[in-house]
Write a protein that binds this DNA or RNA. Structure first.
Length: 488
DNA sequence: CGTGTTTGACCTGCGC
DNA sequence: GCGCAGGTCAAACACG
């Protein structure tokens, strides 16, 4: 059957590129011309039906292949992002400890927010004390583990921290003190799940997503159950609390609240790590938020700003000329009418108990330029508060969008920064450049390193791939799934 | 009847 | 110690 279908597809010129090329239906619809075919005219109707069915099967098969390729790309994106994150963290730690004798900074360099980029191993015993090199090995092992969404904050014992055992002990003490409310949750009726407790021994980092959404919640691919709602005096809009219902023991929660300044902006904050496989939509979302968090938190772990202060860095044109290739960008047509602008995170300040990364996908009423913004907002002095502004500006703005939208339709433009191929070297060069620039003094390095980090991210097609998929998911699905998401 | 939402009560942490 | 705010629980309710 399959061979027959292949033969038919080949004979009709219908092989490959289903959905891209124009199928040659005319061929098999033509009346038979040979004498033998005339003899079998009585069966022509059945033949046509059979052939039509075979064509449909071929289409389905092609579609399946495309989906498989798309999935492979996403998984490669995830793995590359995770590899880069660990590379950056490792190098950053070394340089930080080399550049400073400050005890606190050494402590901070050891405190790493470990990002579960859509996957996590279930070997929770190794979570707390692992070195980066061993984590790289775990990456390979993680290929056979389940998908998760969220951030894990893990404390790792580096060589430097081994030397400075005192700081590490203080670190662990702080970890116990900042143990987030899972411990409280675990005291309740969900507390029977020891596995959850072991998996989440410390306070979770949060990833907050700001997006314009006219629906009560964004459809992020997960199933959520609302378990509470609060109205605070300082905020006119109520805050809704959701927990993941995909798995009964899943500790992941999210908070949904409208922005005080603009109620059309929906702020969704995720915390925790899924302990179950995720739908593709949620996986891409996890990749995006985690990638953003990884860059920013690796920055904040080595740089400091006073609490409550934030800085904004704009990298003009860095995105405009970046190569923005990634899978499924054809879906981003909806972005043509969307813009992205920088806005101050308001929700993060209302939930100040956790280090929070804000992915700002909102659009500025005062600017028509598309921007990607990632806002890191943390409350503690040891976490810097900074803004990464993925800003395309000036005349390059629309070319930036076009570069986004035309992925898969246009050949690689060599004039663009970055690379289309999956070869590592150009991207590695960007990161090497980024790491070079990170070799700065702590006093002035924050803005500049964030700037360079922004550039590093913006030229990294894998990060953009994940970002684009998540954006598409949010924008497309959010409008559709108002009732469904609310019912979740 | 099962599932999800609503909403007041309750718990906990933190600042004064 | 007290008050406030964030977060959660759980009974009542709504809906398909």
């Amino acid at each position: 059957m399959e061979a027959a279908t292949k033969e038919f597809i080949s004979s009709t010129g219908y092989g490959g590129h289903v959905g891209h090329g124009r199928p040659c239906h005319e061929n098999y619809l033509k009346p038979p011309s040979s004498p033998l075919q005339k003899d079998s005219r009585s069966c022509s109707k059945q033949d046509v039906q059979l052939q039509s069915t075979r064509v449909e099967m071929g289409e389905v098969r092609e579609e399946n292949q495309r989906l498989k390729k798309s999935l492979d790309r996403i998984m490669k994106d995830y793995q590359n992002l995770q590899m880069k994150f660990f590379d950056i963290v490792q190098k950053d730690r070394i340089k930080t400890t080399n550049n400073t004798n400050n005890h606190q900074e050494i402590e901070e360099s050891d405190q790493i927010v470990s990002l579960c980029l859509g996957r996590v191993t279930h070997d929770t015993k190794e979570d707390k004390k692992t070195v980066v090199s061993s984590k790289l090995k775990e990456d390979d092992q993680a290929k056979e583990t389940s998908l998760t969404l969220g951030l894990d904050r893990r404390f790792e014992l580096s060589d430097q921290s081994k030397v400075n055992a005192k700081s590490f002990e203080e670190l662990k003490k702080e970890a116990r003190e900042t143990c987030w409310q899972h411990s409280k949750v675990l005291k309740t009726k969900r507390s029977g799940d020891d596995e959850v407790q072991q998996q989440n021994p410390v306070k979770k980092a949060r990833v907050s997503v700001r997006a314009r959404c006219n629906t009560p919640t964004m459809n992020d691919g997960c199933q959520w159950r609302k378990y509470g709602q609060k109205i605070s005096k300082s905020h006119p809009c109520p805050r809704a609390y959701y927990r993941c219902t995909v798995s009964p023991s899943c500790p992941v929660r999210k908070q949904v609240q409208r922005c005080a300044e603009d109620i059309s902006i929906l702020i969704t904050t995720y915390e925790g790590t899924h302990n179950h496989p995720l739908p593709m939509l949620a996986t891409t979302m996890a990749s995006t938020t985690s990638a953003a968090a990884s860059m920013l938190l690796s920055e904040s772990s080595s740089s400091q700003l006073p609490a409550g202060h934030s800085s904004s860095v704009t990298t003009a044109n860095s995105t405009a000329t970046a190569n923005l290739h990634g899978p499924d960008f054809y879906k981003l047509d909806s972005l043509k009418s969307k813009h992205f602008y920088l806005s101050k995170s308001s929700f993060s300040s209302s939930v100040p108990s956790h280090p929070t990364i804000t992915l700002d996908l909102t659009s500025s009423p005062s600017s028509s330029l598309p921007r990607f913004n990632i806002v890191s907002s943390e409350y503690r002095p040891k976490y810097s508060s900074a803004t990464l502004n993925f800003n395309s500006s000036d005349s390059n703005a629309m070319s930036w969008v076009n570069g986004f939208l035309n992925y898969g339709r246009q050949p690689y433009n060599k004039n663009q920064i970055g690379n289309l191929s999956m070869g590592r070297q150009p991207v590695e060069d960007n990161y090497q450049s980024y790491m070079h620039k990170k070799d700065l003094t702590p006093q002035h390095s924050l803005l500049e390193t964030i700037d360079t980090a922004t550039k590093a991210i913006t030229v990294d097609q894998r990060f953009q791939s994940a970002l684009a998929i998540a954006l598409t998911s949010i924008i497309d699905a959010g409008d559709i799934a108002a009732g469904g998401a609310q019912r979740n």
